[in-house]
Simulated scan of single mutants.
Amino acid sequence: MRVVVQGLSPLIWRRILIRSHMSLATLHAALQIVFAWSDVHLHHLRIHGKEYGCARVGGPHFEDDPRHVPLGQLRLHRGERFPYVYNFIDHWVCDLRLEAVLPLDSGGHYPVCLGGKRAAPPEDCGGAWAYLQRLDRHHVPLEAMAVVARVLNRLLEADDQTTMRQVIGDRDTFREAVDQFDAYLQFQPEHVDRRDINTRLRVLSQSEGTLP
C-alpha cells in the first residue's frame, strides 16, 4: 500500500506491506508510526462512502468498532484508493492506494515499511501551507555558523591567560547562534529513518489485538 500526504510538494510518501486481516485500528496506528505522528488528534478513514475511526470523547461517532473491521472484509481491489484524515485543524489528508495483492510470506513480519521519501510534517505545524512556508525558510544559518566558528577559533588559539568570557564574547549572541544551529539540525525534512519505523511497527504487530 502506498500512502501519500496530500497538498505538499515534493511528495511525502511511504510504502507499507500489510496483511489482509489487519484491523482498521491497527492500520491507523501504523500510519501514525510511519509518519512519526503521536496520535493526539482526531482522525477518520473513508472507505466505500463510510467513515471509520477510533472514537474519542468530543469526537465523531463511528458505527463500527475499527478494532473489529479487518481490511480483507472491505474487499478492496488493486489500484483502489481511500483517504485517511488526521488532525481536523491542520487537516492532513493521506491518499492510500492498494498497489498489489501479494502471496503471504509466512516468515515475514507485518506491517513493514518498504520505502518512503521525506519526513512527515510535525504535529501542530499549522497545515500544508504553513509547513511549505517553513520549508522555504529552512536554510543553513550561515551567520550563526560564523559566530560559532569564531568562538571555536578563539578557543583553539587560547592560552592559559585567556578567560572563557574572552573566548565566547557576547554570551547572548553566542547562545542565540547555538539555538539557531540546533533548531536547524533538529528539523531534517529530507530524513526518513526506516529502521526506526520498522522497529516500532514490529512492536505494534506484537501488540495487535490489545489496541484500546
Results as ranks from 00 to 15, higher is better:
110 Y>L: 10
110 Y>D: 00
127 G>I: 10
99 E>L: 15
128 A>L: 12
112 V>K: 07
139 H>P: 00
105 D>E: 11
138 H>D: 08
137 R>D: 00
109 H>P: 00
137 R>Y: 00
126 G>E: 09
106 S>P: 01
139 H>Y: 05
105 D>L: 12
100 A>H: 05
118 R>H: 06
118 R>G: 04
106 S>T: 06
132 L>Y: 00
113 C>M: 11
136 D>F: 09
117 K>V: 14
111 P>K: 09
117 K>D: 09
107 G>W: 02
105 D>T: 07
112 V>W: 04
101 V>Y: 01
132 L>T: 05
107 G>S: 11
141 P>G: 06
138 H>A: 14
109 H>W: 06
97 R>S: 02
106 S>I: 10
128 A>G: 03
110 Y>E: 00
107 G>Q: 07
124 D>W: 11
126 G>Q: 12
119 A>W: 04
97 R>A: 07
114 L>S: 01
133 Q>S: 07
141 P>E: 02
138 H>W: 12
135 L>K: 08
120 A>S: 10
126 G>V: 13
106 S>C: 08
134 R>W: 09
99 E>A: 13
137 R>W: 00
107 G>Y: 08
101 V>L: 15
100 A>F: 03
114 L>W: 00
131 Y>N: 03
122 P>C: 14
140 V>H: 06
139 H>G: 13
140 V>P: 00
125 C>M: 14
102 L>C: 09
106 S>W: 03
112 V>I: 13
119 A>F: 04
136 D>R: 15
108 G>P: 02
135 L>R: 06
133 Q>E: 10
111 P>H: 05
126 G>N: 13
139 H>V: 14
128 A>V: 14
102 L>H: 04
125 C>T: 13
132 L>R: 14
120 A>F: 11
131 Y>S: 05
109 H>V: 14
120 A>I: 08
103 P>Q: 09
127 G>L: 14
